[in-house]
Design a protein around this nucleic acid. Sequence first.
DNA 1: CGCTAGTTTCAGAAATTTGTGAAGTTAAGG
DNA 2: CCTTAACTTCACAAATTTCTGAAACTAGCG
Lengths: 165, 165
Amino acid sequence: MTDEKAPDRDPEAVSKFVESFAAQLVEAGLQRMPARVFAALLSSDAGTLTSSELGERLKISPAAVSGAVRYLAQVHMVSREREPGSRRERYRVHADQWYEALTNREAVIKRWEHALREGVDSLGATTPAGRRLAETLAFFEFIDGEIVAMMERWRVHREKLFGSQ
Amino acid sequence: MTDEKAPDRDPEAVSKFVESFAAQLVEAGLQRMPARVFAALLSSDAGTLTSSELGERLKISPAAVSGAVRYLAQVHMVSREREPGSRRERYRVHADQWYEALTNREAVIKRWEHALREGVDSLGATTPAGRRLAETLAFFEFIDGEIVAMMERWRVHREKLFGSQ
DNA sequence: CGCTAGTTTCAGAAATTTGTGAAGTTAAGG
DNA sequence: CCTTAACTTCACAAATTTCTGAAACTAGCG
């Protein structure tokens, strides 16, 4: 229980990375706490941290951890694991899984497509505006398929770079 | 000049589309005013509207229009045109241009890559965490190239669907 | 069974963001 | 030049979001 389990590298450097990467995620639209929690997990050696570890490293309350993790789990950027025989939870980032989630704006795109379809209908498919919406819709439909294929190629490519696992 | 220039279709229906599409954009991270202004432009027959037309349709102040348009222009989702011989401005959405802007998260991705590179350096490329970051970095580098190629294919595909222009 | 370590929920304080009215700026047109 | 139409900037009020401490909940473990 004497916590001499080598915090990964210089905590200073880690923290610096965490905050700067989190800032970029925020810039891209993620909320601040989820961004920080996520970055912290990403930079942990095991790829997992407990709630209290997160609280300490980021200097935030258990409530904040709880909220951030709930969000991240919802969008599949982290998963939660129960340590067997303990009420303590571990939160894990799967390197490969998270950017798939990120790319997978599927739900978002589907809703856009839906709204666009309604737009085409109600404005009339032959009006100039209707045609513009139809083209946009076609674009997203195209993208849908492309992304799937792209991720396939990535997995092959990844294999080449890093080997199996 | 008697304004009998058919407002594109049923204003009710248009407004309904505008608000619902804008809501989806907001959901995806855009601010509310830019989203509404953008949706309004998208659903206009000419693909352009003046500042005051936007103000009327969306029931917002000139200041709000100004702010929204500034943002949209910055991210290349709309362009501004001066009507020759008038102080009045028109804002235009290029159907093809805007989703290219949308896909073009280039700047964002570059910054992520930068942050990740720093992370790999400071955590050490051989640590587990460092390796995780390196893999993520490789993913984004892969994506960079893919998106360019994808947009090429889209242009070909678009041609097929809608003919030239 | 009750105690306790761990997490979640909740109400509210604090910070941030958003949109407005009003004043400021610019250039067109007399 | 002066007036006026059109956009922009700015200070601030209002709305929203974010984070916290405290209370409530839950399940191990003695």
